[in-house]
Structures are given as structure tokens and as C-alpha cells.
């Protein structure tokens, strides 16, 4: 009987141990979760990037009033979503960050999410200040420039981060390999399950 008691304690210790490990592993030096910038999501909730910790992230920067490349990028993100096995979606966060914080308010992002059927829990839209957006863009090595009050020219990059905020892959251009992004995201989600 005693042995069973020990066994129970042991099981508890082991499980709590692995739980702690996953939750508390020290953030690597190159983690984006160290960034202290302030963001709001599509529900107007204030957050830090660190609040995204624990899930595999697929990140793209866009602006909602864009008529040329962004709709393509948004559709790529939806294709990525479709290519991901549904079982893994809870472990993955598809993140759209606006480069136009002035116009893309949380409300506007919410409407955009609903219109584009991107309002499930695995979609996150983020907006910040111009300065903090620029900092984040520079972390992604993303180029952009405001060319008139409503338009930007910008590079098209989709980035995958692991649950610790380390950059895993970047796909650039409009011929983004949807399969590759999706399978990478699933692979990381599996590894960190």
C-alpha cells in the first residue's frame, strides 16, 4: 500500500515537473517575448507579445485598407489555416499585425476579422503605436513606408515563431509556400505539445 502511495507522489512530481518545464523554460535571448511593446487585440484587450507565449505563431503584417498585396496575404493566411490539421489549431495562433495603427483601431480589426471569417479563437489581430509597430517590423526585417494618408508600400513576409518566441522560418513574396508554413507550424506545435 505504501508503494502505491509513493507511486502516486512520484507521478505527481513527474507530471508537475514537466508541466513547469514547458511553462517556465527561460526565454531564449532571441525571443520576441522580451519585447516590451504594448498592443491591443481585436477585442480592445491590452497585451504584451509575451501574452502570446505558449503557442506556435504564424505572423504577418498588413493594413486593412490595402487593396493590392494585403488581400493576397490575408488569403494566404486563410489557406495556411485550412492546411493545418484542425487538431493542432488550438496550439497555433495566426496573428495579423497592422502597420497602420492610426487607422486600424481594435474595432476596425474586429470588423475586418468578422467580414473575412477570421474570428475564431486561433486568430489574433494586433495594433499598437507607430513607434512600436516600427520596432516589431524591424524585428521581422519587414520594410514599409507610408506613401500617402491611406496607403503603404511594404514587403510581404509570413513568419513562424515557436512557443518560446524564436523565429523558425520566414517566407517572403506573394508566392508564399502555404504548405511549408502550415507543416512547419504543425511540426513545432507537435514538438512542444
Amino acid at each position: 500500500m505504501k508503494a502505491i502511495g509513493f507511486l502516486a507522489v512520484l507521478t505527481f512530481l513527474l507530471s508537475s515537473c514537466s508541466f513547469n518545464e514547458a511553462k517556465e523554460r527561460k526565454l531564449p535571448d532571441n525571443s520576441i517575448f522580451h519585447l516590451t511593446s504594448n498592443w491591443k487585440n481585436q477585442d480592445g484587450k491590452s497585451m504584451k507579445l509575451n501574452d502570446l507565449k505558449g503557442k506556435t505563431l504564424v505572423v504577418v503584417m498588413i493594413y486593412t485598407s490595402c487593396k493590392s498585396a494585403c488581400p493576397v496575404l490575408v488569403s494566404k493566411m486563410k489557406q495556411i489555416e485550412k492546411a493545418i490539421d484542425k487538431a493542432y489549431l488550438p496550439a497555433i495562433n495566426l496573428v495579423l499585425v497592422t502597420i497602420d495603427p492610426e487607422n486600424d483601431t481594435p474595432e476596425k480589426l474586429k470588423t475586418f476579422a468578422q467580414t473575412n471569417k477570421m474570428d475564431e479563437p486561433h486568430w489574433t489581430f494586433l495594433t499598437s503605436t507607430e513607434e512600436e509597430t516600427q520596432e516589431f517590423a524591424n524585428v521581422l526585417a519587414m520594410k514599409y513606408k507610408k506613401i500617402d494618408p491611406i496607403d503603404f508600400s511594404h514587403s510581404n513576409i509570413i513568419t513562424v515563431f515557436n512557443p518560446y518566441g524564436e523565429l523558425v522560418i520566414q517566407e517572403e513574396g506573394l508566392e508564399i509556400n502555404v504548405e511549408k508554413v502550415a507543416s512547419t507550424a504543425v511540426k513545432i506545435a507537435k514538438e512542444n505539445n
Binding site: S68, S153, N156, G173
Partner: peptide
Amino acid sequence: NNKDLFCAAGAT
């Protein structure tokens, strides 16, 4: 320009 890489890149 490789316009695929940049949205509205030809503008500059």
C-alpha cells in the same frame, strides 16, 4: 522591381 516582394513598390 520584384513587385511580388513589395506592395506598391513601383511607386518609389
